[in-house]
Design a protein around this nucleic acid. Structure first.
Length: 585
RNA sequence: GGUCCCGUAGCUCAACUGGAUAGAGCACCUGCCUUCUAAGCAGGGGGUUGCAGGUUCGAUUCCUGCCGGGAUCACCA
């Protein structure tokens, strides 16, 4: 179904056209001044400027045309030329009635199955997932959900960091600690053990230690680089050891992402494109794109009109190793070849903006990606602590993701116990509710902000569960479920509009535009914002209107229908940001 | 130093891409649980949108210059 403001925009657009003005001036939006009108059109002022006319005169002419349309109960001109519109209840009711059973809450798909690849998550093999992975994962997953709902073939790819220097650090360290291991015997030709000689805990201990060491010890770093190159050349023992790293890391990642309700369609990593790199670079060399520079093989991506320094994209380092720019370029090659996407979106820390600019330029320059393939880096802000500096735990370390989730869950259980709502629930259900509350709190705290700005990560605020939080939204949704259940609600009956519920009905009609904005700008926070406003408006209505004791049966049924519609929108909106609602709480 | 981003209530953030009276939450104050879940609701105080200019009927939004903060500037990811 066509959204309400689209219908109104069409009507206004025709009125502008009748005056010889562009139909786009007819764009109608929800009113900024609900006290004056339900909708407004600001086009008369812009049209007047373009046509060098008086804005109020233009508005007057438009209004004259609109007067012939009986869906408006009130049309007037305010200020310099705002056209304020209010619908008759009959017209509003007609639209709302079509919304009641609509499976998508009135939002039609706008895409036709075009493929979009989303690159988010990016956990590293052999390193624990920490809160730094949170933003990429939940923002990326939400954008994927929104795009998919809009009709795109949205493919989420986790793009694991499984092939970089950190692998060389780990392997070389194990070789120093355990030179006798069969993995390090170059003459060994048999099979390697099926069981990993190290655990995730071992890896978690080794990485930060060696990483720090390599920063000060040039020789040790050299050793790591060497091991990295050997691994990338698939030295048998190294490769077997690396396989173990991947296996044990995957188990840990899957635990975290399942808990977070973050989904990936592809579990690929840097390794998956390794075999594409050599042929790709050879090809680029033969075409003259890739050239030798200071011992490295690079693509010069500086453009003539650049005023600033623009470093080249390095494909092969002096030591023959590849860099993440190389794998990112090869990954574009692979994605174009396998999926032919119209867009590839990268949800990665904004500090990597220059890197992506280099890679994107390289991809376009070398025709690895056609000009019409949109390559976009959706760079999110740094996660800071309440002191404004990059987030650290009280002891100065990184907070592991699973610890964060566990903290949220404990807090939620505390809350359930305090409110005594969970007393009659089974332990399983309580744990399930606590988990959903914790994830809702974590996700909503992040996703309600525009992701491009830096984000202050405040554990205390996040787990307070009061005010504008995920748990508030769950609470409102669950209250509606409970209400409908108590009422034994069954769909049907007429929609009755009244002064106490009209605003809520109007808010329900906003969803298509909300989602459209979210899709156009890749901004899940507008969906969060709408869900919150809707929940708040419902809560206000709920507080002022006692539904179950309403004696007028038709009115009661109408309010229940309204409640059901609000619930459906909350469920949809929250699903689009990856938040699940429990049956009760 | 070059380039880019940011600066909105005490704090954390919005503001439909140039619109009307800049909105929420937290914190603070006042009410509301013998009627549908108080993780709630109703109300109150709190703003020269960093500063100074400019464009415009109209600027938090666009332009210029300052001030303050951050990021980044080829062999790490």
């Amino acid at each position: 179904m066509t959204s309400l403001v689209t219908q109104l925009s069409d009507i206004l657009g025709q009125a502008f056209a009748a005056e010889g003005l562009d139909t786009s001036f007819g764009r109608v939006i929800f009113s900024d001044r609900p006290d004056l009108a339900q909708f407004q059109c600001n086009g008369a002022m812009a049209a007047a400027k373009a046509a060098k006319k008086n804005p109020r005169e233009v508005a007057t002419k438009i209004v004259e045309i609109l007067k012939g349309n009986n869906i408006f109960s009130k049309i007037d001109i305010a200020g310099p030329g705002f056209i304020n519109l209010t619908l008759t209840d009959v017209a509003l009711k007609t639209y709302i009635s079509g919304l009641v059973d609509h499976p998508r809450c009135g939002v039609d798909p706008t895409a036709q199955g075009e493929t979009i690849v989303l690159d988010y998550g990016g956990p590293n093999v052999a390193k624990p997932m920490h809160v730094g992975h949170l933003r990429s994962s939940i923002i990326g997953d939400s954008i994927r959900r929104i795009l998919k709902f809009t009709g795109y073939n949205a493919i989420g790819d986790i793009h694991m960091g499984d092939w970089g220097t950190q692998m060389g650090m780990m392997i070389s360290e194990l070789e120093i600690l355990h030179p006798e291991w069969v993995y390090f015997d170059p003459t060994y030709t048999g099979d390697y053990p099926a069981e990993s000689p190290v655990t995730m805990d071992d890896l978690e201990e080794i990485y930060p230690r060696v990483s720090a060491l390599c920063k000060t010890d040039e020789a040790r770093l050299e050793q790591s680089r060497k091991a990295t190159v050997d691994l990338q050349n698939k030295r048998r023992g190294y490769y077997a050891l690396w396989k173990h790293f991947v296996t044990i890391s995957l188990a840990s990642m899957k635990r975290n992402f399942t808990a977070l309700n973050v989904h990936f369609d592809l579990w690929k990593g840097e390794t998956d494109v390794h075999d594409l790199i050599a042929p790709m670079v050879d090809d680029l060399k033969s075409k003259g794109y890739a050239v030798e520079s200071e011992g490295a093989i690079v693509v010069h991506v500086k453009k003539n009109d650049d005023t600033k320094e623009f470093p080249p994209l390095i494909l092969y380092k002096r030591d023959g190793g590849v860099m993440y720019g190389t794998t990112d370029l090869a990954t574009i090659l692979e994605r174009v070849r396998d999926y032919d996407p119209v867009k590839i979106l990268y949800i990665v820390d904004k500090r990597q903006a220059l890197h992506f600019e280099q890679v994107f330029r390289g991809a376009k320059l070398t025709k690895i990606a056609r000009d019409d393939v949109e390559l976009t880096h959706l760079g999110y802000g740094t996660m800071n602590g309440t002191d404004g500096k990059p987030f650290k735990t009280r002891s100065g370390g990184v907070l592991k993701l699973e610890d964060l989730i566990a903290m949220g869950k404990d807090k939620a259980i505390e809350r359930l116990d305090a409110a005594k709502v969970g007393d009659t629930f089974s332990e399983d259900e309580k744990a399930n509710i606590a988990m959903k509350v914790a994830i809702a709190a974590i996700k909503f705290a992040d996703l309600q902000n525009n992701f491009s700005a830096d984000y202050v990560f405040d554990l205390d605020r996040m787990t307070s569960f009061e005010g504008k939080t995920g748990p508030y939204l769950l609470y409102q949704a669950v209250r509606i479920k409970s209400l409908l259940e108590k009422a034994g609600y069954k769909a049907g009956g007429d929609i009755l509009l009244s002064d106490q519920d009209r605003a809520l009905y109007l808010m329900i009609t906003e969803l298509p535009e909300v989602i459209d904005t979210a899709v156009r700008n890749y901004t899940p926070h507008v969906v969060c914002d709408h869900a919150y406003k809707l929940a708040q408006a419902f809560s206000s209505f709920y507080g002022n209107t006692h539904i179950l004791s309403e004696e007028n049966a038709a009115q009661k049924q109408s309010w229940l229908t309204l409640s059901a519609m609000v619930l459906a929108q909350l469920e949809l909106s929250l699903d689009l940001v990856g938040i699940e609602i429990p049956a009760r709480m």
